[in-house]
Design a protein around this nucleic acid. Structure first.
Lengths: 141, 141
DNA sequence: AGATTATTGTTTGATATCCAACTAATTCTG
DNA sequence: CAGAATTAGTTGGATATCAAACAATAATCT
């Protein structure tokens, strides 16, 4: 494949990964969640509590996008918001008990995805491609 | 970088490429066009005439998305539509004279992008990463 | 302390995107 | 050949996304 098609290839892989995740979420009957919501939950599984600002940075989305995404997670009962005592501007988000129940499902979906992506690609190749992708990432930043 | 972060890395690179293209398009005073419009034009530079169906497949977008994208290009005067004589369902699109003028600009933007992406990555590495990305692409399809 | 500046999050408006339902035209089939 | 099935494109509805404008609070400076 021509090296000129790198952008198209990256774009297609991203799109396929997205579809994979949406399909998997459906399969586990978690309908209506997008990968971005999954990313938020992912961070909450390890962090317990984060401000909107930090989460926006973590999931690399605009703060206004995060407002909408979190709003949906709250309405679905997976996440709750609370204002910070010492800084009334800040809002933290955390998992509800219902949200915590999602962790094993997400872990499994994540494992499935990684196994699918790296199928037939040995560890040395994986490391090599990650190294170059990181370089590309900084190049185009 | 951990191989588990492949999805996030792919996603970020795509996003950065998109931003790069939007920035470049602005720089050349082609405001209001998204990379998807650029992809359509790109195919019209080499193909002269394509049906909506074929173009949707080429740019990997839903046909309804293509309707909207082409609609915008038409309204901006870069593209024109015409129904096919022997199949009244089909519509072909082609560049207007105004649209043809964009070719050198797009060629330059495309060259800039490729040069940016591959900076400091030698040809063997480029080939290797493309090979593995292609494998990933089929894995996750 | 009071005024200015910076930060945090929400709201609003615009757009790309997909899916499902639809229309119109063509092709297939019995 | 007439009815059924397929195909090409559009329309409508939903959503993720960003940027800009805004409100509220905190920090800084004079």
């Amino acid at each position: 494949m021509d090296t000129k098609e790198i952008a198209a290839q990256i774009s297609e892989i991203r799109s396929n990964i997205n579809n994979f995740l949406i399909r998997e979420l459906k399969r586990y009957t978690i309908e209506g969640l997008a990968p971005s919501h999954g990313a938020i939950l992912h961070y909450l599984f390890t962090n317990k509590k984060m401000t909107m600002k930090d989460m926006a940075k973590a999931v690399r989305r605009d703060k206004s996008t995060l407002t909408a995404l979190v709003c949906k997670l709250v309405s679905m009962g997976y996440v709750q918001k609370e204002t910070v005592a010492d800084d009334q501007r800040s809002v933290t988000i955390r998992l509800t008990p219902e949200g915590k129940k999602l962790e094993p499902v997400f872990r499994e979906i994540s494992d499935n995805l990684l196994q699918t992506i790296w199928r037939g690609i040995d560890e040395a190749e994986q490391k090599e491609v990650m190294r170059i992708l990181q370089k590309i990432g900084t190049n185009v930043r």
